[in-house]
Design a protein around this nucleic acid. Structure first.
Length: 230
DNA sequence: GCGACAG
DNA sequence: ATCTTGTCGC
């Protein structure tokens, strides 16, 4: 799959933050027009010792709950993890995996924040804009914002807000399970983002495409550090 | 200066 | 994210 090269990735921390503030102005949260069925999930794993980044995108047909395709990539990690700048550490490798996809998903769920970001431009927003596809920010923990714990039933959620603005929602995907932090990525409303994540989280805490992508990168890393190691 | 801080 | 096995429970 193709994507637009809107900018370089070898930036200073300051330039990276400025880029986010700049690109944020072009964010679009178009209203939903159809029910997404071809849903992809993206995740990344790191190998501390070799400084490698492993990325995977798994596409699932929610209608029949079957994997349609999966693409992987790995590279040498260059950018460090800095809260608010996660995109610059993960996106380059994630985009490599994206290139290897042959079927265009209808929506992509990213493991990280979307709009719920200091500059309102988290990983999901950034990736969505580059691949021009609706994306959803689906993080396991909070980056910013305040919230009340949602009720303990699957499907319950509460607003995530900062400074009088709602920036996302905290969603319980299974009874009594720790909630996920959902926010708009690109070309999608928060309502539809919640709907998609809940519908994709059939049996586990994480939506199936993301869960599978996580298993994939974990296996990649395991097999890599065990063999040729180069 | 102090505390917070996606993965 | 990662360091790490078994174990208690639905």
């Amino acid at each position: 799959m193709e994507y637009r090269e809107l900018h370089a990735w070898d930036l200073t921390y300051q330039q990276a933050r400025e880029l986010q503030t700049e690109l944020r102005k072009k964010l679009i949260f178009r209203a939903p027009e159809r029910d997404f069925q071809i849903v992809a999930g993206a995740d990344v794993a790191y190998d501390k010792p070799t400084q490698r980044v492993f990325a995977a995108i798994v596409t699932v047909d929610l209608g029949i709950m079957k994997v349609l395709e999966e693409a992987c990539a790995f590279a040498r990690g260059k950018f460090p993890y800095i809260p608010g700048l996660l995109t610059f550490r993960e996106a380059p490798t994630l985009l490599e995996a994206w290139k290897r996809l042959s079927v265009r998903p209808e929506v992509l769920i990213c493991d990280g924040q979307g709009y719920a970001h200091p500059r309102r431009f988290g990983l999901a927003c950034h990736v969505g804009m580059l691949v021009d596809l609706p994306t959803i920010g689906c993080a396991k923990t909070r980056l910013i914002g305040e919230y009340e714990s949602p009720r303990l039933r699957r499907g319950e959620f509460s607003p995530l807000r900062e400074g009088g603005e709602q920036i996302g929602a905290v969603l319980r995907t299974q009874d009594r399970v720790k909630p996920l932090f959902i926010s708009q990525g690109y070309k999608i409303s928060l309502d539809q983002a919640l709907e998609v994540v809940l519908r994709a989280a059939r049996r586990y805490r994480l939506p199936e495409p993301v869960r599978l992508a996580h298993q994939r990168v974990s296996r990649m890393k395991r097999e890599f550090s065990r063999n040729p190691k180069l």
